[in-house]
């Protein structure tokens, strides 16, 4: 949210950077910043849980067992059981895939829409820029969470629509950054050179401007990933979205909320913690990546 286009473009075509130099830089940044290393560790853990989780969990996350309902954490049920006797640990682990999937899909969608629209706007200017800016302004003028709620409520209660809604409210962030960056570059030396070499405008845009913007946009992705997870969980919390009996962190917190006061704190706590850790990891990693790719912009 604090990313502002600043400074002059120092970028050159990536090739000349050299892989070895980049790795050296990466090692330096990570070495200097233990927090970033930690965040990469967290990220690895999440990916492992998302990929292998369903195969590894000790219990069937969907199987109820009402005889063992509402049991506190124990050696058998590490995070306890919920109202229907389902194992919360297994559900929390399995939910990683769905939550990360929703966040990833929406971020990719926002990334594609935002980068394309933003870059085109910044590069061409004129009407393209005006239209894109108006769309961005309109979305920004909405209270974003309520807009997402509205979209999901209106289009129907499905995972696809959660992804869509989250992508739409993230769109302005991408479009803005992309527009600013493309704008700076549209008359940069290497772009002029590409033009003089006889490339058409779309070719210049796609072949020379866009590749230079992509790393920045990738940073933006990891920064908004956390926000996307929170947003999707918030939607489930108020009952929109994921269908039962699928496990999803937000809906698990919502279900557990009613049990906190009666002392069954584990139902809401563990999915809540998982949610927190995932978002935390992404936010730290986003910062770290930014340091890595774009040291000028360190904050």
């Amino acid at each position: 949210m604090t990313t502002v286009a600043a400074g002059l473009p120092a970028d050159k075509p990536r090739r000349s950077t050299g892989t070895a130099a980049f790795l050296r830089h990466a090692r330096y940044v990570i070495g200097e910043n233990p927090v970033t290393a930690f965040s990469f560790g967290l990220f690895g853990l999440l990916v492992l849980a998302a990929v292998f989780g369903p195969a590894l969990v000790p219990h069937d996350p969907l199987a109820s067992n009402t005889a063992r309902a509402l049991e506190p954490p124990s050696a058998e049920f590490w995070f306890g059981t919920d109202q229907l006797g389902r194992d919360i640990f297994s559900r929390v682990v399995v939910a990683t895939r769905l939550d990360m999937g929703i966040a990833l899909a929406s971020v990719v969608l926002a990334f594609l829409m935002g980068t394309l629209a933003g870059t085109a706007a910044g590069f061409y200017g004129g009407w393209t820029e005006r239209i894109v800016s108006r769309i961005v302004d309109t979305i920004m003028a909405f209270p974003l969470f309520v807009l997402a709620m509205g979209i999901v409520a209106a289009l129907g209660n499905t995972v696809t629509n959660i992804v869509l809604a989250t992508a739409i409210i993230n769109f302005p962030l991408y479009a803005r950054v992309a527009r600013a960056e493309a704008n700076i570059r549209r008359n940069a030396g290497y772009v002029e050179a590409a033009r003089l070499a006889g490339n058409s405008e779309p070719r210049v845009l796609l072949g020379h401007v866009l590749p230079n913007i992509l790393p920045l946009m990738a940073v933006q992705c990891s920064l908004t990933m956390g926000y996307a997870i929170l947003n999707a969980a918030g939607l489930s919390f108020i009952g929109l979205g994921v269908r039962p009996p699928d496990a999803e962190w937000g809906i698990m917190v919502a279900e557990g909320a009613a049990f906190i006061v009666s002392g069954e704190w584990w139902i809401a706590l563990f999915p809540g913690l998982a949610l927190m850790i995932a978002v935390f990891g992404f936010n730290l990693m986003g910062d770290g990546l930014r340091d890595l790719i774009d040291p000028r912009r360190r904050t």
Binding site: L62, A63, S64, T66, Q83, L84, G239, P244, P245, E255, A258
Partner: peptide
Amino acid sequence: DLGLAGVNEPMCVLIQE
């Protein structure tokens, strides 16, 4: 009815299973 999810949702999950 999502308005009565407190009872309906766990009930439907059990019935589904």
